[in-house]
Amino acid sequence: MNTYAIRVIYKQEMMRAWETLLQSFASPVLSTSLYFVVFGSAIGSRIQHVEGVSYGSFIVPGLMMLALLTQSIANASFGIFFPKFTGAIYEVMSAPISFLEIILGYVGAAATKSFIIGLIILITASFFVPLHIAHPVWMVAFLVLTCISFSLFGFIIGLWADDFEKLQLIPLLVITPLVFLGGSFYSVSMLPPAWQTVTLFNPVVYLISGFRWSFFEVSDVSVAVSLSVVLVFLAACLLTVWWMFKTGYRLRQ
């Protein structure tokens, strides 16, 4: 294994985050804090408890997921798209490095950044609402799995996109609506029965549900199903990246 290559890619990507500290970390923390102020404190104080949890606390896992998903995708897609855009990708393509090593470098760095953002948001949330994590190990497990799988998804978008518009297309038109409609701010059980069925086709519901269970032991679907959906998504992303590198799709054609 070319461990030196993994190290330099990872280090370069992490350096990029430190060099743009405000954009990388402060910006998602600020926007999430605003959500807490508006939904948690202002509106949340007038809403009754949801499934036995105060509304302000109830939305914490959903807001963390919202930030994690968007940041994972943005970090990973930009990380690989920018060298493609400048042409500097030639160096990675001509290096003695496998697709797995490329993933470990780029996706590893993107997932690390998202994980750090997730933790910062969690700490920030604790200043606004009372927080109790019932299953901390599972919380970290969901956090890590989500960071990795959505960073992989972002990496696919970065490989696929050949202009900046396409880079923004899926995060804006697909991911953001799915997260907002995936139970970030409400419990699926609060919806009319017909919409509850429709919502179950949204994969983000399973993520948020499992993550919320790790905090409050309340969930819309069973934890096992949530975990399975995340793992299947992770496997699907890995297979897609493997296929892209094997065939050279958008890379070596």
Partner: peptide
Amino acid sequence: NTLSFSRGLFGK
């Protein structure tokens, strides 16, 4: 940094 990056990328 860019030369060091290239060296590492090629496994050295």
